[in-house]
Design a protein around this nucleic acid. Structure first.
Length: 420
RNA sequence: GCGGGCGUAGCUCAGCUGGUUAGAGCACCAGGUUGUGGUCCUGGGGGUCACGGGUUCGAAUCCCGUCGCUCGCCCCA
């Protein structure tokens, strides 16, 4: 158990059984929803050049400076296991001819990697589902993204478990101006800030706004407000997002301290949070990033999107999807073995879920069927072979009856036997 | 990177003011029942008590270190 080869890498885990089914439920629900919103699915490689993330997330960000799984490959390139999805999706859109049709609406899912201390709802290999809308400058795109996020959480039965927080960072110009005002204010009161926030002041001043430190909060409470520094365009943009959400009946709370630290984030920032996951409150979060594509050397096109943590959502599901309940085919005696296999194949071709044990007496196989959670057992021995029938046993009720082979499939369908 | 809690069977745990061969329940395997599961009965396999060191006549038990898990800080989904 403690031998290194018998245990998974810290912060990773094997997905199986109930945990995997919860995981699948989240991903499948998100995919099906994205398709309903006419988003196209994209899968990008897990490996990217390190430079992609250094440029998109910023050299000074925690993720880039200390959380990436980076290595030099045999050809001498610096490669990184992706820590998030947006940069890769934007890169892919730029690299292909995807951006001819705008706006481009994309859905993705997959594993992400960050070298952090594992915690409840936080793993080193974790999974995200996400969407990006590229090439749309209209507030309508922000609204559709938020609507989709809300819709996904509702489909997962989590509508009551989350609240939506919303803010606007304004356009690039407003944001830059506000940043200067904020920095000069914080500098004056630097002595009152926590050591962490003094570091933030250098690297990422906006992040001081959402510090949890009590002393920081006092300073922040009197800080100049971002909303007071939005220019006319930015204000109108935010108003339109809010108005449309209101008219669609989407509840939200404006949180002026909800920020994104990176330079290319603009306008809308939002987060769906829960109080049911301990320290990890954010389950689905995103925002507008009008400066990103240009920062990556592509055309200067706007973008907006969100990502959701699959593990976090999976943990919040009130119940796990049930495992399939197979049919057990049970030969009685050696002479029925061949016919049992033919029957099993016939049923599998018809779509039924069928288990056939490799060995054991009828009783042992019946026990296996029970342990596997089978709903029905189909047994056949010399008598049934002679009559062209099988014995159909309902393992929940214990009732057993004899059915003609040519009526079997219809009977099973009528009883609701599971098909895949 | 920093701090707290916890490591005894596959799982959940008892044993821990040091004292014969380390236990229970569940799970697993076999038999009772060689044409039928669940219940019941009988038997069985499973443990370097996380690892290393120390104290002691004697350590699962006390002390130290290491590793692992977990929760929080930071950061984020």
């Amino acid at each position: 158990m403690s031998a290194p080869t018998a245990r998974p890498v810290r912060g990773t885990r094997d997905l199986f059984g109930e945990v995997l089914r919860r995981h699948r439920r989240v991903v499948e629900t998100a995919r099906s929803l994205a398709l309903r919103y006419a988003f196209a699915e994209i899968e990008t490689p897990i490996l990217e050049f390190t430079d992609l993330f250094a440029r998109s997330l910023g050299e000074g960000s925690d993720v880039v400076s200390k959380e990436m799984y980076s290595f030099t490959d045999r050809g001498g390139d610096s490669i990184t296991l992706r820590p998030e999805g947006t940069a890769a999706v934007v890169r892919a859109a730029m690299a292909g001819s995807l951006l001819q049709l705008r706006p481009l609406k994309l859905f993705y899912h997959g594993p992400m990697f960050r070298y952090e201390r594992p915690q409840k709802g936080r793993l080193r290999q974790f999974h995200q589902v996400g969407v990006e809308v590229l090439g749309a400058a209209e507030p309508a795109a922000d609204v559709e993204c938020i609507l989709m996020g809300r819709h996904l959480l509702e489909e997962l039965g989590l509508g009551e478990a989350v609240v939506l927080e919303l803010n606007s960072l304004g356009n690039l110009e407003s944001r830059r101006r506000y940043r200067e005002v904020l920095v000069s204010y914080l500098r004056r009161r630097e002595g009152e800030l926590s050591p962490e926030s003094r570091v933030r002041l250098q690297r990422n001043p906006l992040r001081v706004l959402d510090s949890k430190d009590a002393g920081d909060r006092r300073v922040v409470a009197e800080a100049p407000r971002l909303t007071d520094h939005l220019d006319e365009e930015s204000r109108r943009f935010f108003e339109e997002v809010c108005d449309r959400l209101d008219s669609l009946g989407v509840a939200y709370r404006i949180n002026p301290h909800l920020v994104r630290g990176l330079d290319y984030y603009t306008h809308t920032a939002f987060e769906f949070t829960t109080d049911r996951l301990g320290a990890q409150g954010a389950v689905l979060a995103g925002g507008r990033y009008d400066g990103l594509m240009a920062a990556l050397g592509g055309p200067d096109l706007p973008g907006i999107g969100w990502a959701a943590g699959v593990e976090r959502l999976a943990m919040l599901l009130s119940e796990a999807p049930p495992a399939p309940r197979p049919l057990a085919v049970i030969p009685v005696g050696e002479e029925a073995e061949g016919e049992a296999w033919r029957l099993a194949q016939e049923l599998r071709r018809a779509g039924f879920v069928v288990d056939l044990a490799y060995r054991g007496r009828a009783g042992q196989r019946m026990k296996r069927a029970d342990r596997l959670g089978c709903r029905f057992a189909l047994s056949l021995g010399g008598d049934e072979l002679a009559r062209g029938t099988v014995r159909l046993r309902d393992l929940d009720s214990g009732e057993e009856r004899e059915i003609a082979r040519d009526e079997l499939a219809d009977t099973l369908l009528g009883l609701g036997a599971e098909r895949r």
